[in-house]
Measured scan of single mutants.
Amino acid sequence: MKHYEVEILDAKTREKLCFLDKVEPHATIAEIKNLFTKTHPQWYPARQSLRLDPKGKSLKDEDVLQKLPVGTTATLYFRDLGAQISWVTVFLTEYAGPLFIYLLFYFRVPFIYGHKYDFTSSRHTVVHLACICHSFHYIKRLLETLFVHRFSHGTMPLRNIFKNCTYYWGFAAWMAYYINHPLYTPPTYGAQQVKLALAIFVICQLGNFSIHMALRDLRPAGSKTRKIPYPTKNPFTWLFLLVSCPNYTYEVGSWIGFAIMTQCLPVALFSLVGFTQMTIWAKGKHRSYLKEFRDYPPLRMPIIPFLL
């Protein structure tokens, strides 16, 4: 059985960083990364991007050496992705923050609204209902991160945790300040508006959870398998008939419901920014589905049925 020789060059300087002799033909890129780490321990596998061309796409960890368009002496180019952190850690951090930050404003801890309001309670029912909904949303997200989601990528750049936390924590503080303010004004149409908004919120939260469970069942634990998601017997998953990412559709719907319930401008802005970002993600995933699966359902749109 022939063996391969693998040289790894710096993608920027073309400097030879490592030479691997007698590499098995069936070795994966993940195994080559581990061998590279032995000579350069500062670059652990998650930091490494190996590619066939200095400006090309990163090879997948599961790619097999003998199936790549290389000879028995293969040249790979290395790029440092920077310090990495696990997706689970990032999600837990960015979701735990809003949960606790919101509660600080809800309980009106000292130095927020003035001494005479310390630890007082709002007289408006919608304020307490909003706290329950907000807390439920982020507790749900935390539990899904721990027990439901299966991540195709193990890590992301460390800098992302600061960007994500600034976004989630900042908006949580902004909306919580106004919703729990002693001078907060309840919704214009009173109980009817709150009940309608609560119904929207609850339905969308159930829908979002149902989609996450359906997506989880598509991917076996520990794998990166991708399949076309289809509706199940659960009615909340029937939205798969019309959109590629109904989890985002339901998520946006939840925040629209919360915005109607609280009639709070920061919540509306958070919903708008979230919708914009999720639309970008949904379009990317939709394109990926179309590219990977020739039999992908043609009627589906990325996030909004028939429109977007």
Rank of each mutant, 00 (worst) to 15 (best):
residue 145 T to V: 04
residue 108 R to V: 04
residue 215 L to M: 06
residue 35 L to G: 15
residue 265 L to N: 04
residue 14 R to S: 09
residue 30 A to Q: 01
residue 222 G to S: 03
residue 191 A to F: 12
residue 18 C to A: 08
residue 152 S to P: 06
residue 162 F to S: 10
residue 164 N to R: 10
residue 146 L to T: 02
residue 272 L to I: 01
residue 43 W to G: 11
residue 56 G to S: 09
residue 302 P to G: 03
residue 176 A to K: 00
residue 35 L to S: 13
residue 291 K to I: 00
residue 150 R to H: 09
residue 134 H to P: 04
residue 273 V to G: 11
residue 26 H to K: 04
residue 199 A to T: 07
residue 110 P to T: 03
residue 255 W to G: 03
residue 236 F to Q: 03
residue 178 Y to M: 14
residue 176 A to P: 01
residue 97 G to E: 05
residue 284 G to F: 03
residue 203 I to G: 14
residue 147 F to C: 13
residue 234 N to I: 11
residue 104 L to R: 06
residue 290 L to Q: 07
residue 207 G to W: 15
residue 253 G to A: 04
residue 192 Q to I: 07
residue 11 A to W: 04
residue 73 T to R: 03
residue 29 I to T: 10
residue 286 H to Y: 03
residue 257 G to L: 02
residue 128 H to K: 00
residue 104 L to Q: 05
residue 230 Y to Q: 01
residue 299 L to P: 08
residue 225 T to R: 11
residue 185 T to N: 04
residue 7 E to R: 09
residue 98 P to A: 08
residue 213 M to I: 09
residue 46 A to F: 03
residue 273 V to D: 01
residue 54 P to K: 10
residue 225 T to P: 11
residue 118 D to A: 03
residue 302 P to W: 12
residue 34 N to R: 13
residue 83 A to R: 00
residue 262 T to I: 01
residue 161 I to N: 14
residue 150 R to G: 04
residue 21 D to Y: 09
residue 204 C to I: 00
residue 43 W to A: 13
residue 51 R to Y: 04
residue 137 H to D: 00
residue 214 A to D: 01
residue 200 I to G: 15
residue 253 G to F: 02
residue 164 N to E: 09
residue 133 C to W: 07
residue 122 S to G: 08
residue 297 P to Q: 00
residue 77 Y to P: 15
residue 290 L to I: 06
residue 122 S to N: 12
residue 30 A to H: 07
residue 300 R to W: 03
residue 23 V to T: 07
residue 177 Y to C: 10
residue 123 R to E: 14
residue 166 T to F: 06
residue 105 F to L: 08
residue 185 T to W: 15
residue 289 Y to S: 14
residue 45 P to N: 15
residue 97 G to W: 06
residue 190 G to Q: 01
residue 19 F to N: 11
residue 15 E to M: 13
residue 20 L to V: 10
residue 191 A to G: 05
residue 288 S to Y: 14
residue 149 H to S: 03
residue 70 V to L: 10
residue 230 Y to V: 12
residue 303 I to P: 00
residue 222 G to M: 15
residue 260 I to T: 11
residue 221 A to G: 06
residue 46 A to T: 12
residue 3 H to L: 09
residue 294 R to W: 06
residue 124 H to L: 12
residue 277 Q to H: 05
residue 88 V to K: 04
residue 21 D to G: 11
residue 127 V to S: 03
residue 271 S to H: 14
residue 97 G to S: 13
residue 224 K to Y: 14
residue 104 L to P: 11
residue 99 L to P: 11
residue 100 F to D: 07
residue 3 H to D: 12
residue 293 F to S: 11
residue 138 Y to D: 02
residue 99 L to K: 03
residue 79 R to W: 10
residue 217 D to C: 15
residue 31 E to C: 13
residue 4 Y to C: 11
residue 198 L to T: 15
residue 49 S to Y: 03
residue 174 W to V: 02
residue 282 A to P: 03
residue 140 K to V: 14
residue 33 K to P: 01
residue 293 F to W: 13
residue 304 I to M: 06
residue 255 W to L: 07
residue 53 D to Y: 07
residue 292 E to C: 11
residue 60 K to H: 04
residue 3 H to A: 09
residue 100 F to Q: 03
residue 70 V to A: 11
residue 191 A to E: 04
residue 13 T to A: 10
residue 217 D to V: 05
residue 88 V to P: 14
residue 105 F to S: 06
residue 68 L to D: 06
residue 278 M to S: 00
residue 69 P to S: 09
residue 124 H to R: 08
residue 141 R to P: 02
residue 106 Y to V: 00
residue 100 F to M: 03
residue 95 Y to R: 03
residue 202 V to G: 10
residue 292 E to T: 06
